[in-house]
Computed example of a mutant assay.
Amino acid sequence: MTETADARAAITATLIEAIGAPVILIDAQGTIRALSPAARSLISGLDTGKQLALVMRDPDLIDAIDDVAQRGGRHVVELVERVPVERTFRIHIVALEGDGRRHAAMLTFEDLSEQRMTERMRVDFVANASHELRTPLASVLGFIETLQGPARNDEAARGRFLGIMREQGLRMARLVDDLLSLSRIELRAHVTPQTPVDLAAIAREIVDSLMLLARGREVTIALDLPAQPLRVAGDRDELLRLMENLIENAIKYGRRGGRVEVTLASAGGEASVAVRDDGQGIAPEHLPRLTERFYRIDTAQSRETGGTGLGLAIVKHIVLRHRGRLTIESVVGQGATFRAVLPALPQTPG
């Protein structure tokens, strides 16, 4: 390479590294020569000197890059990544100068994840809401017709029906709130939270807020926390919701007069939140489906306790957004343990 070519390549690399959008420059042999910081953070494993095809192994993308390298011109490819979360990119591949047989190329990435997620959420929201709201709405309408007709002058019936209608209205409100919460979490699934959050402080806050519910069911909550703050990179509101859903479920579905154990720990660069109840446990066939939307082991009990069938789905999506994992362990007759494991931040004194 001549001195002029070296200088030109250095200038090009400097320009690309200053770009705020995800951009990758590869030479005629497919080796990464420059990439922007946004590209580094978007796709793990990218670095100068590496073969792009060894990092991004999608066959359609590799074929498009090869075609541009041989023929020049441009290609547009849509790429869907499934791991660690589903993301969709539109990649523009443009040929640059060549050596006579093959061309260098520049790749620019357009993140379509939020747009695709919004479209899917809109469809899912309509389907789920219409299905789950139909029963309480039909109940409310039926009572209204009765109050307007046969029970118009029946004071006792009016009081009883209005009480039931209020409960059905509250059920619909809870359902809409949970659907909106789930939609917001899914919408941001591809954006990893970065704010330091102390899980121990969240656990104390949630346990304090649920003491009235626990006393109502004569449940004892045992809180086991580490001596130091247990920090993760997270969204505080979502982690509050995660902790609240797990502990509230343990209180509601565990044994009346029983014990709920909340244990926070750290090991191997991970922080774990384990919530154990001493209830009747969960049969093995139900465990794989517990985090599905609207899946209920006992529909009547879930609705009686005010459940919407979305609590564990919300927990699962919060854990996935925080790049963690959720495990469920249970033996029938011996209770259940729900454990959320998240990447921990390095501990600091105090």
Rank of each mutant, 00 (worst) to 15 (best):
T2L: 09
E3G: 10
A5K: 10
R8M: 14
A9T: 03
A9Q: 10
A10E: 13
T12Y: 10
T14M: 10
T14S: 13
I26T: 12
D27G: 11
A38N: 01
A39C: 08
S41Y: 13
L46W: 02
L52D: 05
R57K: 12
L61W: 03
I62P: 02
I62G: 00
I65E: 07
I65K: 04
I65M: 15
D66Y: 04
D66C: 05
A69C: 05
R74H: 14
V76W: 06
E78S: 07
V85H: 08
I91F: 05
A95G: 11
L96W: 08
E97L: 13
E97C: 09
G98T: 08
A104R: 11
E110S: 11
R116G: 01
R116I: 04
M117F: 01
M117Q: 11
E119Y: 03
R120N: 00
D124N: 05
D124T: 01
A127M: 00
P136M: 07
S139E: 15
L141V: 12
I144P: 05
Q148M: 14
G149F: 00
P150G: 07
R152P: 02
N153R: 14
A157Y: 08
A157P: 04
G159A: 15
R166I: 11
D177K: 13
S181L: 13
L182A: 05
R184N: 08
E186L: 03
E186Y: 00
E186G: 01
L187M: 08
H190L: 00
Q194D: 14
T195D: 13
D198W: 02
A200S: 14
A201F: 00
I202S: 03
I202K: 05
R204D: 13
D208A: 15
L213P: 00
L213V: 12
D224K: 13
P226E: 06
Q228M: 09
A233W: 05
I247L: 10
A250W: 01
A250I: 03
I251T: 04
Y253I: 01
G254V: 04
T263Y: 04
A265L: 11
A267L: 10
G268V: 07
E270W: 11
A274V: 03
D278P: 02
G281D: 07
G281P: 08
A283G: 09
A283K: 09
E285S: 08
E292M: 06
E292F: 01
R293K: 13
Y295R: 07
A300I: 12
Q301L: 15
T305C: 12
G309H: 04
L310Y: 09
G311H: 06
L312D: 00
A313I: 00
V315W: 02
V315E: 03
V315K: 01
R323F: 07
R325C: 04
R325K: 08
E329P: 00
L342D: 02
L342V: 02
A344R: 04
T348P: 02
T348I: 11
